[in-house]
Design a protein around this nucleic acid. Sequence first.
DNA 1: CGCGGGTTTGATGATGCTCAAGCCCGGTGG
DNA 2: CCACCGGGCTTGAGCATCATCAAACCCGCG
Lengths: 194, 194
Amino acid sequence: MHEILYKYINRFTAIPLIEREMELIKNAFVLKKIRKRQYLLQEGEICKYLAFIIKGAMRQYRVDDKGSEHIMGLSIENWWAGDRESFSMLKPSAYNIDAWEDTDALLVTKPELTNLLKQIPAMVDMKRKLGENNLTATQRRLDALISSSAEKRLIDFESTYPELLQRFPQHIIASYLGVTKETLSRIRRQLVEK
Amino acid sequence: MHEILYKYINRFTAIPLIEREMELIKNAFVLKKIRKRQYLLQEGEICKYLAFIIKGAMRQYRVDDKGSEHIMGLSIENWWAGDRESFSMLKPSAYNIDAWEDTDALLVTKPELTNLLKQIPAMVDMKRKLGENNLTATQRRLDALISSSAEKRLIDFESTYPELLQRFPQHIIASYLGVTKETLSRIRRQLVEK
DNA sequence: CGCGGGTTTGATGATGCTCAAGCCCGGTGG
DNA sequence: CCACCGGGCTTGAGCATCATCAAACCCGCG
């Protein structure tokens, strides 16, 4: 189970994990099975765990005053789930995270992660690069929202995240892109008609 | 000149800077005066410097195919300027950064910063928190874009960044919020009429 | 005085939302 | 085997929001 995580970490660093480090990781990351529709985090709670997804699919979203959901993030195998703001600052989260498919994830708490970072240089590398990638991805999305049409955002999304397209229904993708499901449907038709 | 930076760094850490560390910082951060309208970074270049602003105001923006500008970030005293994606990954930037007012900034290169991080624990703390804050701010902006009206975005902006309101003209703020200057103008009138 | 940058206003049109209805399809239970 | 149900997707009509384009205005400054 944990081998997948070791491999993942090694992809980020020039200093591969050694036996002792894998042992530490194995103890810190606990396997949790999360059923479809089950919450990993609910609005108002502090995000206690970061989850590395072994199998399955999760979504992070906010519910507005009118009751509609807005997707902030989607994650599948080999991705992370968790509200980093709440996790790192120990503040109540504004978001919900739940499983869209039955999911196996490895959970780690903040104290345990901090501890690992003190002892495992490879994980420091990973964390740094992960932070960079995250910021980059968020900025791209922001950029697209202020400067591109919904059509362009869809095209970009399809080429950037083809894996996600096949795992989540259209109304979820629509919300991620910042449009309604009806609008997404119409945009898709227009694209086919070309 | 560098004292402001020392103070800034100390705000992020429980381990205050010592004499020797300040010396290192002083050598790594070079003062640069940037005239209004002068570029710190142009699209296509690799972002060689992170800039800590001592005095003045800068903006980061993208120019789309139609030639209109989209503001990605604004910074004034005690903030940073620079394209983190380009800086950390050494990739050509999609953005321009220029001075909106005559600006004094302390510039640091990536090798120098890396070196400082190896030697100064306080700066590691600062970098971590800065990263967290940055991601948080970007996520909030993203959230607002997919789930709030332009009116709510303006109200939030005014209460979150009152300093910026007084330093940048409305058409810049409008672009930051993802609307045109005309729309912003009308929204403001509506708000006054209430 | 006139110029330039910034802001406002108006008219018009595009884009995307809302609400409501119908469709498609893969279960599930009679 | 069929009827029905629910979730997801599509379609249409009407409406709200916002962009675009053009013009006027305002004001500080050379």
